[in-house]
C-alpha cells in the first residue's frame, strides 16, 4: 500500500513540477495546488497505512490509526488554502494591472 502511495505522490510531484515551470499564471497556481496534494498524501503515508479504527475513542477497538499526521494535514490544508486564495487574487489583480498572464512578459524594466 505504501509503495502504491509513494508512486502516486511521485506522479503528483512530477505533474506539479511540469505545471510550475510553464509560463501561464493559472497553470502555475494549479501546479502549486497539485504539489500540496502530493505533500499531504506523503504525510499520511509516512504516518503509516496499517489497518485500524478511525481515531475516535467511541469505536471501542484495540488498534487505531495514527492521529497525529491527520492533525498535521488538517493544519497544512487550511494554511495552503489561505495561501492559494491569496495567490489567485494576486494573479487576478496582476492580470488587470499588468495586462498579461504570461510570466515571460514579467521581466525587469529596461535599465536592469
Amino acid at each position: 500500500m505504501e509503495t502504491l502511495m509513494a508512486l502516486l505522490t511521485g506522479l503528483l510531484f512530477a505533474v506539479g513540477t511540469y505545471m510550475v515551470i510553464s509560463r501561464n499564471f493559472i497553470r502555475i497556481i494549479l501546479g502549486t495546488a497539485i504539489y500540496s496534494h502530493g505533500a499531504h498524501l506523503l504525510l499520511i503515508t509516512m504516518g503509516g497505512l496499517k489497518g485500524g479504527a478511525a481515531p475516535l475513542l467511541g469505536q471501542g477497538n484495540d488498534l487505531y490509526v495514527d492521529a497525529l499526521p491527520q492533525a498535521l494535514i488538517l493544519t497544512a490544508i487550511v494554511i495552503n488554502f489561505g495561501v492559494t486564495a491569496f495567490f489567485l487574487v494576486l494573479a487576478y489583480r496582476s492580470n488587470k494591472e499588468l495586462g498579461t498572464d504570461d510570466l515571460y512578459h514579467l521581466r525587469g524594466n529596461k535599465d536592469e
Binding site: V20, I28, T32, Y35, S36, G38, A39, H40, L42, L43, T45, M46, G47, L68, P69, L72, A76, V83, F86, F87, L90
Partner: peptide, 19 residues
Amino acid sequence: VLINIISSILFLISIGFLY
C-alpha cells in the same frame, strides 16, 4: 509568493520524512 509556496511544500515533505 511562488518561491515561498514551493519551499513551504518542501518543508512539509521534509517534516513528513522525518516523522
